[in-house]
Simulated assay, not measured.
Amino acid sequence: MLKTLALFFLTALMEILGCFLPYIWLRQNGSVWLLVLGAAALCAFVYLLSLHPTASGRVYAAYGGVYVISALLWLQWVDKIALQWNDWLGAGVILTGVLLIVVPWQN
């Protein structure tokens, strides 16, 4: 189960980077290499998402929850905005849902 969750978090990181790097390119007039790196991150995202050994709909459902948690962590670590109690509570509720979906794969 930890391997599955780690793969989900790595997948989410690639998706967030794939969106964040072009955003930086647009907002800060960055190098075209940001677009290349963003495209590579999105390719890695698709590849990583394909590594899960169960039905795609179940993978997408569980991944969606991990993505939300990852976005909150990005907000805190990259954007330097402190999470509020309701952010943490929401992340806990979402993580519970993810685990309810993922745990049966491991049996």
Rank of each mutant, 00 (worst) to 15 (best):
V59L: 01
W105H: 11
N107Q: 13
H52F: 15
A39V: 07
L100H: 10
E15P: 07
L2Y: 09
I94G: 11
I24Q: 08
L49T: 03
M1P: 07
V46M: 11
A44V: 00
A55W: 14
W105N: 08
V32I: 15
L73G: 09
L73C: 07
F45R: 00
G64N: 05
A82E: 08
V103S: 14
L49Y: 06
A61F: 09
W88E: 06
T54L: 12
P22V: 03
F20G: 04
I94E: 08
S50K: 05
L13I: 13
A71Y: 05
A40D: 10
L35A: 02
A55Q: 15
A12P: 04
G64V: 03
L72K: 12
L21N: 03
G30Q: 04
L75A: 03
T96R: 13
T54C: 09
F9V: 01
L72H: 07
A12C: 13
W105E: 10
N107M: 11
E15W: 08
G18D: 07
Q76K: 15
L73P: 01
H52R: 02
P104G: 01
S31N: 14
F8H: 02
Y60Q: 08
G90S: 10
R58D: 14
A62W: 03
T4V: 03
L73K: 00
N29T: 09
Q84A: 15
G18L: 00
F20Y: 11
A61H: 10
M1W: 08
M14G: 07
L26Q: 10
A39L: 10
M1C: 04
G18I: 08
I101Y: 00
W33L: 05
A12I: 03
W25C: 03
V78E: 12
G97D: 00
L99F: 02
L10M: 01
L42M: 03
A41F: 07
G38K: 00
Q106S: 15
Q84R: 15
S70V: 03
V103D: 14
P22K: 07
F9C: 02
I69H: 06
L89M: 04
L37F: 04
G38I: 01
V66D: 08
W33F: 14
L13G: 13
I69C: 11
G18T: 06
A82L: 13
V59P: 10
S31A: 08
W74Q: 05
I24Y: 01
S70P: 10
W77D: 13
S50H: 08
L13V: 15
A41Y: 02
P22W: 01
F9T: 06
V103W: 15
T96D: 08
L26D: 10
V36R: 08
V36F: 10
A41G: 09
L10V: 00
